[in-house]
Amino acid sequence: MRERLALSTPVMGACGKTGTWRVFRPVVDREICNACGICSLYCPDGVINEEDYSIDLDYCKGCGICANECPKKAITMERE
């Protein structure tokens, strides 16, 4: 009976590598970045690492919120 239940299993990339959607790629200037963490707080998909603020480009959709909200303007959006 149990195997008939339509249960989904949590896996990484359940919706594919969403990074392929991207037209503009976020590039962080480490010289200007002061590691405030605002980009990571506002990233809708949580692809910005909290410790070293590296961006997972396999999944980043390139929405540009991080570049728009960065108080130091350390992130620029560059065309792929």
Binding site: C15, C36, G37, Y42, P44, G46, V47
Partner: peptide, 28 residues
């Protein structure tokens, strides 16, 4: 900041549109 990484309950990545507030709300 708040150590959100260990408490991330949405795996990368949903198929939400780029810039979607819903996935941001759900994360928090």
């Amino acid at each position: 900041m708040s150590g959100l990484q260990e408490t991330e309950y949405i795996l990368k990545c949903t198929s939400a549109c780029a810039g979607c507030s819903t996935s941001l709300i759900l994360r928090h």
